[in-house]
Design a binder for these strands. Structure first.
Length: 868
DNA sequence: AGCTTTGGCTAGCGGC
DNA sequence: GCCGCTAGCCAA
């Protein structure tokens, strides 16, 4: 039997499936709250008590197991977790020291597992809601839906707009949506988990619509995209997760001039304006269809869901859920059950992989790289790691008969019969092979070819998630000892391999988790080394730890013609060949970890790094002058030219609700500052923007000169920012580190590191301050209302020029009239004093003033330096 | 409420 | 200027 959805509804599980004609068929099964117990552990007396208990609805012996069904969920919670009332107390099983198995498993999961039904491919549709922009998400119960659009994969589309600002009209609108959605099983919306889905549920309730939303599989397209699209080239693609940005990067379309924050106004205006709202709504929804057409993520996920026997909705995206689905069935078939999942307090971390600190000097040439094929899965297979094969063994001395021992953790495992985890892994990997073979037999591009390709990828996804799930304290399969044995065996294999390479005169300059970078070897020597490792070394050393199978395999992956490291996990290199295929003249460099790859680096920083990498790594230019020239040119631009917001902003996500950012108290009792992106996030939230966990905050630093940086939302950018900060903190350091690593003998520090002219001090400052009647040490940073504000004092700047420019700025600024600006000329010194009336309005003005001032200072400074 | 892991780098803040 | 700490992102 095949099932497209199943959910608890009242006192039954509603099961939906599509028949041969595609019609939706409903059936119902009773929900079961089951716990498995080890019969021997329970003993006959307690077993009899249980079987007679009024809380127990079903009682069955299944081999060594007792299968006990509770009368309902509350009884289950009470019996297993001691959850009734407020006071936690030990459960009857805990009191007797009896382990329970799978007691937490949800009735729908239980039904899917026990019945062995197949998960059908759902009929998919995409949708998007437009809602009243005046209402924040927090009050979604009052958030009127203005329009909706629904698009099918074949391009058919439905949409509707609110007729009147009345409850009945909205009721009709929502009703029409569910009528259109009726022929589909799975509904996707961008960021649906955090917006469209909860809004729709809230409005169904508010308008008392007789619709059961559980009848559909709700899948957040953004969450799907994030999970499935892991490959990304540069930081450019990580700037924004907004639908329009992703569509732009992926499809080259999507930018719409409609202002999403003004939906209410658009609707209220009626006529063409309301039509534009709906058109925008439909167009956005169609982007989802196009994104899927391009990526195939949802199709792949359908396949993963089918393999794991989970439903393809947002919940099913979680690895723990997928593994639960796969393994519970696997266990049932083999007569194995897994522990009940309980809430866990934070648990201690375990040790992970080995990362070598790069041992390089400048740009290295001809570096060979090998890596282990699927290292963690092959370790689990080789050492037969599984909860039920785990066994205590002697820590020292010979390995016991019938067991193997992880060399670092000294954890033992029985060998011979495959454990349930390795067995499942083996099946998954062999299925992957099968589908790969089928794929190879089919003409590429055929429907069946795509399906085979997705199957193969789906099995790979599941196999790769095994280790992570074993290491997760939130998973049923969590086993710290096994997880640590996996990582530490990896370390052991990596270090043993390095040792052997170095015995042969090669030099390992870097390695991370499963890879080794080697120099002082020819291609043939390295090939030979890898072959020897596979044929001789691994079978031998693995057998010495008691293993009876060896799945460890090393592969010669690539050779770098040139490569430079700035530290662990950070490098840029150019291939000589990749898997034996020679690089061509237009081969792109491989860049890892550098700011170029990071979504939280300023665009100017990424572009500079890219340019320098291309020059020194791709083109092989090794003259420091080349780079000094590039740097000098950019510095001039950064200090003097107009800069676009995209070039200067930084974007960072807040990872939790704003309230949860703990504000520490300083020694003086004052609150300490949050990170800049959090401060800006709070500003935006105050203005009414939706800022939740995961929201990316784009901001610009106006003043990064000591103390706490002054940052503003990118939307407030008016062309002014702290250009010295921009250069000294954001743009130059990433490239400086790269150049320092590549050309260690050159000096990349003194000349360009500090470009901010020194603040005047001593006599010049004092004179100006006296002249202005200011106390020494006037307030820094953004002043409060009415505070006198000493911006800067400097010597010998061509004071007349400065004054002229300042007047221009004052005249241009709308709030200039309210701002008292004093410019003091005193024997060649200039001081600017301002009394802002309203901080928010005056900040930009003040910054512009300061900008002018320092620009003059900087050009002097720069000229002086160039002359030297 | 639900959650795949650990290792490493960098920036910002506060305290000395 | 250094160090401890938080935070975010990336490599594997």
């Amino acid at each position: 039997m095949e099932v497209v959805n199943a959910y608890l509804s009242g006192s039954q599980i509603v099961v939906l499936s599509r028949d041969g004609e595609g019609a939706l068929v409903r059936s119902a099964v009773p929900p079961e709250y089951i716990v498995y117990l080890d019969a021997e552990e329970v003993g006959s007396d307690f077993a009899r008590d249980l079987s007679k208990s009024r809380f127990v609805k079903s009682f069955k012996r299944e081999g060594k197991w007792l299968r006990v069904g509770w009368s309902d969920r509350l009884i289950r919670d009470d019996m297993l977790f001691g959850r009734r009332g407020g006071e936690p107390r030990p459960s009857p099983f805990e009191e007797r020291g009896i382990k329970t198995y799978e007691g937490d498993v949800h009735p729908v999961r239980r039904y899917l597992t026990d019945s062995g039904v197949e998960i059908q491919k759902p009929r998919r549709a995409y949708f998007d809601l437009e809602t009243d922009s005046r209402v924040p998400f927090a009050r979604k119960e009052e958030m009127r839906i203005l329009s909706w659009a629904l698009v099918a994969p074949d391009g058919r589309r439905w949409s509707a707009v609110l007729e009147a600002d009345e409850d009945n009209a909205e009721r009709d609108l929502i009703w029409a949506f569910f009528e259109a959605a009726g022929e589909f099983d799975q509904l996707l919306a961008w960021n649906g988990d955090n917006f469209d889905f909860p809004v729709l549920r809230a409005r169904i309730e508010k308008r008392a619509l007789r619709v059961d939303p559980d009848r559909w599989l709700w899948l957040d397209h953004l969450a799907l995209f994030k999970r499935m699209n892991t490959a990304s080239e540069s930081g450019d693609e990580k700037q924004s997760m907004k639908l329009q940005s992703i569509a732009m990067a992926l499809l080259g379309e999507g930018k719409d001039d409609f202002d999403g924050s003004k939906t209410w106004q658009a609707w209220e205006a009626g006529g063409a304006s309301r039509a534009a709202l709906l058109a925008y709504n439909v167009q956005d929804t169609d982007l989802l269809r196009k994104i899927e057409e391009k990526t195939g993520s949802a199709s792949l996920f359908d396949t993963v869901a089918n393999v794991c026997r989970v439903f393809p909705d947002s919940r099913g995206l979680n690895s723990t859920v997928q593994m639960d689905g796969y393994m519970l069935r696997e266990g049932l078939v083999r007569g194995v059950h897994f522990p009940t999942k309980k809430y866990r307090e934070q648990v201690e971390q375990y040790g992970g992989a080995y990362v070598m600190e790069p041992k390089t000097q400048g740009i290295e040439r001809d570096v060979h790289v090998c890596d282990f094929a699927s290292l963690y899965p092959s370790i689990i297979l080789t050492w037969n790691m599984s909860p039920e094969t785990k066994v205590d063994v002697a820590i020292n001395g010979p390995v016991w008969e019938g067991t193997c021992r992880a060399p670092s953790t000294r954890q033992g495992f029985r060998v011979g019969e495959a454990g349930i985890l390795p067995d499942a892994l083996k099946r998954i990997l062999s299925l992957r092979k099968e589908w790969n073979a089928k794929k190879a037999d089919l003409p590429p591009g055929m429907l069946e070819w795509y399906e085979a390709d997705r199957r193969s990828t789906a099995y790979k996804v599941v196999a790769n998630s095994f280790y992570g799930v074993i290491g997760s304290p939130f998973s049923r399969f969590f086993d710290r000892r096994i997880a640590e044995s996996v990582t530490k065996n990896g370390e052991w294999l990596l270090k043993r391999t390095i040792e052997e390479a170095e015995k042969l005169g090669m030099v390992a300059i870097y390695g991370d988790t499963d890879s080794i970078f080697v120099k002082n070897a020819t291609r043939t020597q390295f090939e030979e080394f890898v072959r020897w490792c596979n044929e001789d070394l691994y079978p031998r050393i693995v057998a010495e730890t008691g293993c009876v199978e060896n799945h460890i395999k090393l592969a010669y992956e690539k050779q770098f013609r040139r490569i430079v490291f700035t530290g662990a996990k950070r490098y840029a290199g150019l291939y000589a060949h990749y898997k034996g295929k020679e690089a061509t003249a237009d081969s792109k460099p491989e860049i890892k970890g550098l700011e170029y790859k990071r979504g939280d680096a300023a665009l100017l920083a990424r572009r500079l790094q890219e340019k320098v990498i291309n020059r020194m790594i791709v083109e092989g230019d090794a003259r420091p002058e080349t780079f000094r020239e590039i740097l000098g040119e950019l510095l001039q631009r950064v200090l003097h030219d107009p800069l676009l917001i995209e070039e200067v902003q930084i974007a960072k996500a807040v990872t939790k609700p704003l309230k949860e950012y703990v504000v520490k108290k300083k020694m003086d009792g004052e609150d300490s500052s949050s990170p800049p992106h959090v401060r800006v996030a709070k500003m935006l939230a105050e203005r009414g923007a939706e800022v939740g966990a995961g929201t990316r905050i784009s901001f610009v630093v106006l003043d990064g000169d000591g103390g706490i940086n002054v940052a503003i939302p990118a939307d407030d950018y008016d062309g002014t920012c702290d250009r010295y900060y921009l250069w000294e903190s954001l743009i130059y350091p990433p490239t400086q580190r790269l150049l320092q690593a590549a050309f260690p003998e050159s000096d990349w520090v003194s000349a360009l590191e500090r470009v901010r002219p020194p603040k005047p001090r001593g006599k010049a400052r004092k004179a100006a301050e006296e002249q202005l009647g200011l106390a020494v040490g006037a307030p820094r940073g953004i002043p409060g209302v009415g505070d006198p504000f000493l911006l800067s004092v400097a010597e010998d700047l061509g004071a007349e020029d400065v004054l002229l420019k300042l007047k221009e700025v004052a005249a241009r600024h709308p709030g200039g009239r309210d701002l008292v600006l004093h410019v003091c000329l005193n024997s060649g010194s200039v001081a600017v004093l301002s009394t802002p009336l309203k901080v928010s309005g005056s900040v930009a003005f003040l910054r512009e003033v300061e900008e002018v001032f320092w620009a003059c200072a900087a050009s002097r400074e720069w000229e002086a330096r160039c002359a030297n």
